[in-house]
Design a protein around this nucleic acid. Structure first.
Lengths: 196, 196, 196, 196
DNA sequence: AATGAATGAGGGTTCATTCAT
DNA sequence: TATGAATGAACCCTCATTCAT
């Protein structure tokens, strides 16, 4: 019993986050055990509990971390004073680029909402809605200015986000297309989908 | 001790499929136990094994059933001789309508691919690709005829399907919008997204 | 996976109760594992959960079972119309005899109150108080009739019960003294302790 | 990283003893973790091992400490030359008073005998028997002198000690009765229980 | 003398699955 | 075809204990 040897390991917590992210994305939260995560990190399962109170907490950390990074990155990127068309292009590019680099985070953040217990679900869901609202605002502004013709801003926002997020299901770095190329294709499709 | 008098109407197998579908959609395959499914049906867990060899088989039945129904319904609906624009509209309407009625099936079919063990995964994945190919063909045809301007038919097909399938994440029967209304909005957006 | 062979086992539940009783008495509820109990019964630990929802439930069953048996046995034994002296003798004899045969139940019932979670604790504690009240009533009646001289009926009741119950800590069947002999000794001591 | 400034007054070891005593009394040795004890002291669990080699040692220290104090206090109190009646009164008063102030110690010392591993168990058990022998001697002397009428000195001793020790299960400082009052009641009952 | 992270065992409980009835 | 009890593996989590710092 007890710890025997060197095995210092400092960044166990962050390596566990990484491992969990990959495993959750590949197999789903419910299908991944703490032992598997610990195994990838190279520690015993119990050691994870020095860093995360529960498996659920580990998931929550991953999801809040991702959503916060998303919201902050967009806040830093976006210029609310430019024209709606410009802002829509910017949003499209931002979304694709941000998500292309983070296929696992995105997948987990969108797919494991159902694995969140109640207080956690609400917190994350609010962040998600706040991101969707950013696009909705762009669309509403553009409709008002006459730059876009839109039947229903909420529906259009959901449609566009679904389209963009879908990229993560098939895009692979080093595949047939570069991120820039994908970006161009989507910017074009999105722009046309709301053009008057 | 055999069957209890109360087991009226539907047979156990089909009620189990229904129960499993709802539970898988809500909580995910891995998070649902055979006991829970059996509980919704009103039988003991062991009884399910008279109808499905394994839990995995139950999932496979649900997914192949759904994909088969989808492919057959589209085959029945679609007129390969009409103009690409007409066919794209038809595809959009078909997809939305078919999926709006089957939120659970769709969710499971797209989300639980990762829960399939190997031989099963390939079979389902092939059906899925074959459905995507239908749209890709329409887009290719339209691009050839000059009806559409498309940068990359595969990417456009994935983008459109993602956009359309996203409907199931927010559409609720009896909500703010009717299926017909949603259909119109999407037909319009999709058409514009590929219009020259 | 799954059950392999004969291993019918009918009275698993009652054998588990027996095993648990002995183990809880010897080592304490917290120090006994479901695996140990199952081991004594000759089944796997999981099998116990076909009979008891939780380990706590198993304890509760043992304790309520014992308290109910105690109250019922006393109700059947005792004659509320006889003289207080007679009733006190009867109570003493009853308590010693009932407890001498059930050293484990008694030990568990008195010692594991602290292991009960709240709703359970209250139910058991009420039964216990109701038993103590039986003795208190006898003492009060005897004090009223002049048969006893008692300073404080509640304290006297607690004192006598503690004295009697203590028997289980040292009495062993087949030891130096027979139950009858022990009974006589205590009847005498108890009677004298309240005699005017 | 060493000791934090706040750790005023009491040293860790004695605060750990206090904390352990309270927790063992309330929840039982097996149900209390080193982490809980450390938590009450305000240190990490590992720190306890600078003061106690094992959890078992902590228990042993508490129990030997209590038994030693008990034996020494009685040795100081009692006058072996006085009459048996006087000595019985003195014993009763001493026991009640000593125990009333130390409900937790008593509870642990009597209840956790079963948690002691073998060499420890014997040492403590011997001390306990030696205390019981004190009372037995008084009773034997009184029986010899004709001051008491006793059927079996060992049984009587056990009965009286059980009765007296039972006080700790219900007596609360600041409750309905003062210690002195309880003392009087018991002195009276005990005396009468052996009076010829 | 304390921290904080680790070990390895084990705890209660659940699970897919099996099988006698 | 259903039940109910069983298996054996796994799961999340906790524990006593150790040790580098």
């Amino acid at each position: 019993m007890g710890r025997i040897a060197g095995a210092v390991g400092k960044e166990t917590a962050s390596r566990a986050r990484e491992a969990a992210l990959g495993l959750f994305a590949r197999h789903g939260y419910a299908a991944v055990s703490m032992r598997e995560i610990a195994g990838e990190v190279g520690v015993g399962a119990g050691a994870l509990y020095n860093h995360f109170a529960t498996k659920q907490d580990l998931l929550v950390e991953l999801m809040t971390g991702h959503m916060q990074a998303l919201l902050e990155a967009w806040a830093k990127t976006h210029d609310p004073d430019s024209a709606p068309e410009t802002r829509l292009d910017a949003f499209t590019r931002f979304h694709i680029r941000f998500h292309a680099d983070r296929a696992d985070e995105v997948f987990v953040a969108y797919m494991e909402l159902r694995s969140l217990e109640q207080p956690n679900f609400h917190r994350i869901e609010k962040m998600r809605r706040s991101y969707e609202a950013e696009l909705e605002t762009i669309l509403t502004d553009g409709a008002a200015s006459g730059a876009f013709r839109i039947e229903d801003a909420r529906v259009a926002a959901m449609a566009i986000i679904a389209m963009l997020t879908g990229v993560t299901t098939w895009y692979r770095q080093g595949g047939r297309l570069s991120v820039s190329r994908v970006e161009e294709i989507y910017v074009d499709m999105v722009a046309r989908s709301v053009r008057p």
